[in-house]
Design a protein around this nucleic acid. Structure first.
Lengths: 167, 167
DNA sequence: CGAATCTCAGCGCAACTGAGATCG
DNA sequence: CCGATCTCAGTTACGCTGAGATTC
């Protein structure tokens, strides 16, 4: 936990965890739940502030990067859904927004008429590169507080939360 | 990273990080950004599924717990805003929902007429205890994959993302 | 026919803005 | 008067549910 010396208890999360422990079991679970909620919010706000001037948010940035990584003609909606771990209708919404902005295109699957393939446009690729450069140069917003070791450790721990089974 | 043996590369986040590294610097930052996004979503969905039968979500649960920890007559809205790290109008909304459900009450501050104090009701306290028991027994949803060591390590790392300065 | 894929409308939650009231 | 606190109305964003159309 944080420094808790001589009444200098100032972090609200640790303070809440202390109170939890007085009445309930599983204090480390509660503390980590709260820390993950706050930590995600801090990171997301910082990164979204960096992306906003580009007309992107975190979801759009992630989708754009996924598409920029793809060599094929495009990704099916269901594949995007699995990669981003969101619901299918959210992908429809997200692709609609990026398509309006001219950053992605929908094309028909040559063999299966049910699936529509989403591909990045040249403008989308340019914007994805700009966004990547901005985030990397800033150290990814609030994540810049970490040294390389801390980033690896955090990434490794968080990996265990994902059911990796989606190849 | 995850096991990456003989073409058995199956985790989408690590796969994306591999592609990022081909073109951009800061691969560990990108990987951790993605891992934090996915990890938070997995945790939040699991916990909210546990809370839904109680009529709670993650925000309401957190506020209810904060109030159950408070010995004073209640917390001012600005204090709740700082503890939860959300916007003031979101607190108004949140307290309104919990108040409708009879879980919290607003009372006037005895000395400062500007502030309204939010206090938990007996029904709110009973529900908070039930929620705490359910979460603790489940190991906090997806966080149950961690041993105590992992929880502590994750909580410690995430702590560094917060500007703790809010006493 | 059943199963898969995708779209869409409707809902809820939450952030944000700006206006206004009240009070120190 | 200035500043702080809080509420409210209105807008926007976005994820989820559920229903439906289309195609395999």
């Amino acid at each position: 936990m944080a420094e808790d010396v001589a009444g200098a208890r100032r972090d609200p999360v640790d303070e809440a965890a202390r109170r939890w422990a007085e009445r309930h079991p599983g204090v480390e679970g509660f503390r980590t739940l709260t820390a993950l909620t706050r930590g995600y919010a801090v990171m997301a706000r910082g990164v979204e502030a960096l992306l906003r001037p580009l007309g992107l948010n975190l979801s759009r940035f992630e989708l754009l990067m996924m598409l920029s990584f793809t060599r094929a003609a495009g990704l099916p909606m269901t594949r995007i859904r699995d990669l981003l771990m969101v619901h299918g209708s959210s992908v429809t919404y997200l692709v609609g927004r990026l398509s309006e902005a001219g950053l992605v295109d929908r094309t028909a699957h040559p063999a299966d008429g049910r699936v529509s393939l989403v591909a990045i446009t040249p403008a989308g690729r340019r914007l994805a590169d700009r966004a990547a450069r901005i985030l990397a140069e800033s150290g990814f917003g609030a994540l810049a507080v970490f040294e390389e070791d801390g980033l690896v450790a955090l990434g490794d721990l968080l990996e265990r939360l994902r059911p990796d089974a989606l190849g």
